[in-house]
Design a protein around this nucleic acid. Structure first.
Lengths: 351, 351
DNA sequence: CTGAAAGCGCTTACAG
DNA sequence: CTGAAAGCGCTTACAG
């Protein structure tokens, strides 16, 4: 008489109910829980015989280890907290994708959370992440004070982008924002533009300030300056870029080119320009900063300073993985250089 | 002699090290762990005196409950798994934002993960979410078979968007895709267009098929048809829309309007049109479906069928929250109706 | 190579 | 109102 496996499975199910735990597996396989755990974690050599029995039991019972219990017992949650500002930002989205990509390949799972450019929200979200005992933190830009970051880093490894600081147990990944502003300006100057307008970010935005500084320095190096009335603050979104552009146009000052401190504002600016009857690039050249996916598809395609946000995400995750595998995280500050991506929204000035 | 609080705090820190647990709090406050737990959870009345002592101890020790331990002991992780396809998709991004918005207000934390339109990836990610013992699942579109969804729903509450099914313990939230196609077509037909081109999605994409069907039905209701040679498949991204548009143009057939089955493809199509010297909307009208944020800022601004993805996200999260507070999740299938958002990319045909 | 035991940091009946 | 005890489902020294 042949053994009916289905019936055995059913009996097991009936006997143990839905709560198939490591305990259940051990009982069914006739070994101790320790042995099952060791097989699961590859943590010690186990004899072929028992291994077979255990693997068979796991398969039959459809056992899935409870990661929560593993976390508590093992002291690692296999989870990484990620703070961003808007989870659906087209720019930071690339970083998020990069993080997910390298983390998931390593069995870690990222927990993404948004700070909404509000320091109190950030603290709350970070608090929540800490209560969840994440093994590490990736902070893709933040309003937090340096000391708060330092404090976090004393509790767990953190990699932060968007600022250049050196703290123990913290790795900083930063764009050279001044360089981004500089090459944008140089590109326009090289095309013969002298009257530059700028759509900047909100005034409390550090990246924006640095980019603007880069622009001004580049322009001053050529011995002229930007008219302050041609610098208007946007909000880093399409709408703000649109409004800022209209404001600039309404000032009735002459300008032949405009730099928006991020691409989203450049999109809005282009629309405002078009509505005012100004052609891009024939009447005014526009350059953005970020080079998000969409920038290759605007009309005309946008010339932009590429900031490698995807690389930042990947790198941040890779750094954390390295730390977990034993490398020490050391007071490092990596600077990523921007590059110019010239498309069709900029043009040599016609005299 | 006055008590020096700082010294007390230091002594406590020295004595208990960094591992401030509920146990520590109990000891410092001179009560049992049960009492501390009750205060933390508001789970029973506690005398004012002890409450004061405990709260003071929590404050002084800077105690933060370990959510992992709470999860294991309490049987709830306060965490919701969210499966999406690309975490940085501009369309699903709105849903993600909606989910985060309502969940975080309720103390739950969403764990977002991407399936990349690959059913095996989806299974892996879902597996990982289940091992993490999420309390509920939100599936923003998926390639999974209905039976797999049914199986998941037998283990925990799930709300799924993108398909209309009725299962116990599952709530389905769906757009009326056929209606989306229909109103897009009707809008164009009402403007006098007869020769319509369509950029569809990949062939195995259900939403795309339904939208296309809606278009065809609307057109047939007016007693004419769409030339099959004017229907070309894209990939739901800008690039695919661009390529499809070029292909359509190269066919040398006459068409006065085009419907792209999502906005991203419409963006690419507009660029291809412009490069071919065709003006939007003067030479060809274009309408998209989705109405993502950016669509208001293309040149010209894109007429699109609005799909309320933000509402879907919010609603999905709210449904789960309701379930956790006792409402039963019942075999419901909600249909969300699309609406037309007319901007400047469509125009009455000039004869 | 393997098992018994203790422990991770909480929650929750069970008594009183 | 409050505490002692058991338990959540694992991992990991400690012995052998």
């Amino acid at each position: 008489m042949s053994v009916n496996l289905t019936n055995i499975d059913e009996r097991i199910t009936r006997e143990f109910g839905n709560q198939v735990t490591l305990q259940t597996v051990a009982r069914v396989a006739g070994v101790s829980p320790s042995t099952v755990s060791r097989i699961l974690n590859g943590t010690a050599n186990v004899s072929q015989g028992k291994r077979k029995l255990v693997e068979e039991a796991i398969r039959r019972l459809g056992f899935r280890p409870n990661q929560i219990a593993r976390s508590l017992a093992g002291g690692r949650t296999m989870t990484i907290g990620v703070l961003t500002q808007y989870i659906d930002s087209p720019f930071y989205g690339a970083g998020i994708r990069g993080i997910e990509e390298v983390l998931s390949g390593a069995g870690y799972i990222p927990i993404f959370t948004s700070g909404f450019w509000d320091i109190r929200q950030e603290r709350k979200r970070l608090q929540s992440l800490m209560e969840r005992r994440v093994d590490g933190l990736i902070i893709l830009t933040s309003r937090l004070h340096d000391e708060e970051l330092l404090k976090l880093a004393s509790r767990l490894p953190v990699v932060v982008s968007g600022r250049g600081i050196k703290f123990p147990n913290l790795h900083s990944l930063n764009f050279d924002n001044a360089a981004a502003g500089r090459i944008a300006a140089e590109h326009l100057v090289d095309l013969g533009h002298r009257d530059l307008a700028v759509i900047s970010g909100p005034h409390d935005h550090k990246d924006s300030d640095e980019r603007l500084r880069g622009i001004c320095l580049a322009v001053e190096a050529k011995n002229y300056a930007i008219n302050d009335s041609l610098i208007v603050a946007g909000d880093y979104n399409e709408h703000g870029g649109y409004r800022a552009m209209r404001q600039i146009i309404s000032r009735n000052l002459s300008f032949s080119a405009i730099i928006a401190l991020n691409d989203q504002m450049a999109f809005g600016a282009m629309l405002a320009l078009q509505q005012a009857g100004l052609r891009v690039p024939d009447d005014v050249s526009v350059v953005g900063i970020d080079d998000v996916t969409h920038s290759a598809f605007t009309i005309p395609p946008l010339t932009s300073v590429s900031l490698p946000m995807l690389s930042v995400g990947r790198r941040a995750a890779a750094i954390l993985l390295d730390v977990f595998s034993g490398y020490s995280l050391g007071e490092k500050c990596e600077i990523l250089e921007p590059t110019m991506t010239i498309r069709e929204s900029t043009h040599r000035i016609v005299v």
